[in-house]
Design a protein around this nucleic acid. Structure first.
Lengths: 341, 341
DNA sequence: TTGAAAGCGCTAACAT
DNA sequence: ATGTTAGCGCTTTCAA
């Protein structure tokens, strides 16, 4: 089937394209008879106005761009779900760009940005974790654009719109929960420290311990978010600190790996070792034992990011100013049996 | 920053828009001097050609539409990753539409399809599981389109392009693995039977048992893919068939739930009960015990779907015919300790 | 090697 | 209430 254009519809209906256009846009200035006839023809020919032509003329594409890293994982996909839902509610479609490789390089990020812009997206949500790759250039670049951008989970910067989970607070929450139960030797398996989120969780753990006058000596090992790294990390931790009483794993997968290492070492959870994770993946409640963890409302984060972008767009539309703002989402402690003393 | 157009670039360079266009498209018929100058100006003004205008004129948007259901889950997000990767490699961007609610209704699917089409996508990948909602209308509709569509994981139909995992074979694989180890009372926790995939896995299990001359009586309970339903299902199964020796859970989450129920019932895995799951989610290898499961190469499925769509598009471009085809992806048995006798 | 004119599909602004 | 003209940003065609 060839694509039908407004011209053909107009011809078939014996009216001008303008009249068809008016019917399409529900304008009041069309006689009821004409409207009805045109609508019928539209239906018959299964005519569908070209969003592309409309974008060109209106200078708005009704499309939001989103760049996501690590979509296979629970966090990014939940976030994307939140973003999409809100986007659709506000009448936008989603142009999605993914980053796959181990570390999101500058080259690729640049390409993604330019591609989204060339497709005339009305706004952008940047859900690519901040790595050691210098990100200032990106933030700088976005400030020069006429297209609003909201960043997710990144080190806050002045004049930048951002939504982030308070990972620092999450780290403290986890650690303080363990401290309250009188554990004193509380280990940490970090995420890759090139990630902002991993550093924040680490800082929360460290500060909580230090404020209680406790040492962090020998209690910290490095993971890469994977269950395998959690297992290896736990093993190292038990070797270097056999007096370990509790563990804060920077995500649930690593906690799961740690469970396995603890089992092989003959340590029961929670009797011999209390564990807290981070994320609250759907499986966490069914771990053995069910995992105490820090829940992040990722969908909400996505939703908020879209709202910020949208408000920003509307402001620019009306030629008003828009104050960049940073929105913090608070994480929540979910207590299950892995931390019960 | 206002958006720069080709006109402004042309003016700044003192040439016609045509010359700029030629430079943009790397046409040979521009003098080296002019080309260089224009390129510099383009860079200076950070001019970016409008993909929208190009789409309009060329009748190709270089965009692929994809409709996905249940993106929070591991399966759909892996598939999307595969789709996106291949799409980008072939020079397309991805317009993503999500379905959220419990059951993907016809209304919403229709809307999604129309929306993608109105945005002039060059091709569509339909990754929404087939439910009891009658899908024939959708397939029929796509046959009338000038835009090629590839379906994922659906009941094969004539004249329809599709990629699917052989879920039936997967179900047999799981069950035969258990049979080989001399288990005879092998239970099944199904997915929601409104899903084609769930029915296929069920059929594989049933046929395998029946061909071995075994009864399926009292060995089947219904789940909804969630770990909670796996736990409830396992409990029921143990009640109605206390002589249960093994279990095939139609996905890994339900297997995880079943683990928990088995534990509370005092049954050890695998000594008292062997378990096989389906999907091979990344966590499966770290369950306690590690889960034997059926792996599906979901990324590959996504990749293949895009390739089919692309070949189809090229064929239409050259006004050739294109034979709809059905591609089957074979699942693979991953043996871990949950099924070791 | 370069440019002018026409037009992709649609709508805003101005007739009638 | 309806039609005409012009133009969104770019490229195709044809002329110079």
């Amino acid at each position: 089937m060839k694509k039908v254009t407004i011209k053909e519809v107009a011809e078939a209906a014996g009216v001008s394209t303008m009249t068809v256009s008016r019917v399409l846009n529900d304008r009041p200035d069309v006689s009821a008879v004409t409207r009805k006839r045109v609508q019928e023809i539209i239906h018959e020919m299964s005519y569908r106005p070209s969003a592309v032509a409309r974008s060109l003329i209106r200078g708005k594409s009704h499309t939001l761009g989103i760049a996501v890293f690590g979509l296979e994982h629970y966090g990014p996909s939940s976030t994307l779900v939140g973003v999409e839902k809100q986007a659709v509610e506000l009448g936008y479609s989603m142009l999605v760009s993914l980053m796959h490789d181990g570390v999101p390089g500058r080259e690729t990020q640049q390409q993604i940005l330019e591609n989204l812009l060339s497709r005339q997206v009305d706004g952008i949500v940047w859900a690519i974790a901040e790595h050691e790759v210098n990100r200032d250039w990106l933030c700088q670049r976005t400030r020069e654009l006429s297209t609003p951008v909201a960043f997710l989970n990144m080190q806050p910067r002045p004049d930048t719109t951002m939504v982030a989970v308070n990972n620092y607070a999450g780290g403290r929450l986890a650690t303080e929960h363990l401290l309250k139960q009188h554990y004193r030797r509380i280990g940490l398996i970090t995420g890759p420290l090139s990630w902002w989120e991993a550093r924040q969780r680490q800082a929360g753990w460290r500060d909580a311990l230090q404020e209680s006058g406790l040492s962090t000596e020998g209690l910290e090992v490095y993971g890469d978010w994977s269950a395998a790294s959690g297992e290896a990390g736990m093993r190292r931790l038990l070797e270097q600190s056999p007096d370990l009483e509790a563990l804060f794993a920077s995500n649930d997968q690593m906690a799961l790996g740690a469970f396995q290492a603890a089992r092989s070492a003959g340590r029961r959870i929670p009797q011999d070792l209390a564990v807290v994770g981070f994320d609250d993946i759907p499986e966490a409640a069914y771990f053995d034992p069910p995992l105490t963890t820090i829940r992040q409302d990722l969908r909400r984060m996505g939703t908020l990011a879209v709202q910020l972008v949208h408000r920003n767009m509307e402001a620019r539309w009306r030629e008003e100013g828009f104050e960049p703002e940073v929105l913090w989402v608070q994480p929540e402690l979910i207590v299950r049996q892995s931390s019960n003393s």
